[in-house]
């Protein structure tokens, strides 16, 4: 791969011809390319294609989840596909834009709600004097008991956690550790950090936040 990047130069000598919002982002990188002074815009090929593909993929994820009883599949696979649709949208329209569109509340509600739903469905028969997950004590047919565990439990947990991991990894490591305890939004912390300290991670986060759209 050493021959692919014509402008492949080390670190700091190419910081003059970059758009200002990307300059910090590029300065710490060994492999930054020399761009022609134009900021990156989201691809005109990827965006319309994702607009067409995403609804079908999401519907197929729902099908895999809901039809797990009659064909291969189930909550885990369907949940993973639904999370993959969110990844697809994030790659097409920018991760930060998707992060704003899909609030943290939704992701956490999916993961926590899924775990609670699974535990609730399991414990309801216990309350009625049976065993954990004894489906015939549920007020619905056994088949729908299984389906509800798959749909409300496993699919929700898997899709929520995978989406969460995606946004988490896109954010990266909070080098200051101030994500804990102070209750303030993490993005603001990163911006403050970029202003006052010169640590590479903080610079990267701030530049990514600013230069995403």
């Amino acid at each position: 791969m050493s021959d692919v990047r014509p402008g492949d130069e080390t670190a700091d000598d190419d910081a003059d011809d970059v758009p200002p919002h990307r300059a910090r982002d590029r300065s710490g990188r060994l492999d930054s390319e020399r761009r022609q002074g134009t900021p990156y815009t989201e691809s005109q090929v990827i965006m319309p294609t994702v607009k067409i593909v995403a609804p079908f993929a999401f519907t197929y994820g729902l099908f895999i989840t809901f039809h797990g009883a009659g064909s291969p599949g189930g909550g885990f696979q369907g949940g993973a596909i639904m999370a993959a649709v969110v990844f697809m949208i994030a790659f097409a329209f920018g991760i930060e834009a998707t992060r704003e569109w899909l609030a943290n509340t939704v992701v956490v509600a999916l993961a926590v709600g899924g775990a609670l739903a699974f535990a609730g469905i399991g414990l309801l028969p216990v309350a009625r004097g049976g065993a954990f997950l004894q489906y015939d004590l549920l007020p619905i047919p056994v088949k729908y008991g299984l389906e509800s565990v798959e749909v409300f439990g496993i699919a929700a947990i898997v899709s929520g956690v995978l989406m969460g991991l995606f946004f988490l990894l896109a954010n990266g490591f909070d080098s200051d550790g101030s994500g804990f305890g102070d209750g303030g939004p993490v993005d603001e912390d990163a911006d403050e950090l970029a202003g006052e300290s010169g640590s590479p991670e903080a610079d990267r986060t701030a530049a990514a936040d600013g230069g995403e759209r």
Binding site: R99, V107, F167, L169, F180
Partner: peptide
């Protein structure tokens, strides 16, 4: 094997929480 699956689902959930802790974050998105 429903109880095993419950444990498995909780492991996935715990994996998400562990990633939060490792990356020093409080929120996912």
């Amino acid at each position: 094997r429903g109880f095993d699956t419950f444990g498995e689902a909780v492991v996935v959930f715990a994996g998400g929480i562990a990633a939060l802790i490792v990356l020093h974050r409080e929120v996912f998105a």
